[in-house]
Every structure is written in C-alpha cells, then in structure tokens.
C-alpha cells in the first residue's frame, strides 16, 4: 500500500521510516513524502493511481492541508485515495471542516503511532 505523507517538517520522513521500519522492510507499506501541499499535488499528478492513502498535516505554510484536501477531492474523483488529516491538539474547527470536505479520518498531534498503525492495517485489509 502506497502512503503519501504531507508535512512541512522534514524530520517526519525519518520518523515514519523508523517507526514503520518493519512494515516497509516487509513491503507492507510504501511511504512517499511531500513537504508542502503543492509538492503533494504534483506528486499525485504523476502517481495518481498508486497512492492509496494520504496522511496530511493541516497547518502548513503555503497550501494548507484543508486546501490540499479540497484539490484532491476535486482533481481525483475517479480514484479517490483515503485521506487522513493530522492537526495540532484541540482544534475542533479544523476537524469539522476536514470532515465536511470529505476527510476519511482525523488524528491529533502528538500522533499515536500504535493507533495509526492499526488504522493503516485496517485500510490495508
């Protein structure tokens, strides 16, 4: 399963690679990383059919996670990937907005990786 992680913090890449080391090794998950909303969209343009799951931060400079979600839902209606939004603690506004725009799930920072792994595995099945 190909997962695109969108976050403006570059350290997220090494964190995910280490957290999901076993799954990546076994080929269960494949992670790609984009460090801005724009980058994520251009990646989607070239790998549209491959990406099954998008994990996106909401608060990013430039294109926000919410805008990215809107674009994805508009540009890729044929093969819609699952979109899971991540945001800072206690931000109910963003939560409601993301759900309304068609986000599949919602996570709050700090991300509970155990919970995330379970959710990803459920999507996998």
């Amino acid at each position: 399963m190909k997962i695109l992680v969108v976050d403006d913090e570059e350290d997220v890449k090494s964190l995910f690679e280490q957290k999901f080391r076993k799954e990546i090794r076994s080929g269960l998950f494949q992670f790609s990383f984009a460090f801005s909303g724009e980058e994520a969209l251009s990646y989607m343009a070239s790998h549209a059919s491959e990406v099954v799951m998008i994990l996106s931060d909401i608060n990013m400079p430039g294109m926000s996670g919410i805008e990215l979600l809107k674009s994805i839902r508009k540009d890729f209606p044929a093969a819609p990937p699952q979109v899971m939004m991540i945001t800072a603690y206690g931000d109910s506004n963003n939560h409601d907005q993301a759900m309304q725009l068609g986000a599949d799930d919602f996570l709050t920072k700090p991300v509970n990786f155990v919970e995330l792994k379970e959710k990803l595995l459920m999507v996998q099945e």
Partner: peptide
C-alpha cells in the same frame, strides 16, 4: 509542542 513531539517520537 511540535518540536516536543519530535523529541518524544524519536
């Protein structure tokens, strides 16, 4: 909180 999350996660 953001940098702290990284500290904890790493």
């Amino acid at each position: 909180q953001n940098p702290l999350n990284f500290v904890n996660n790493f």
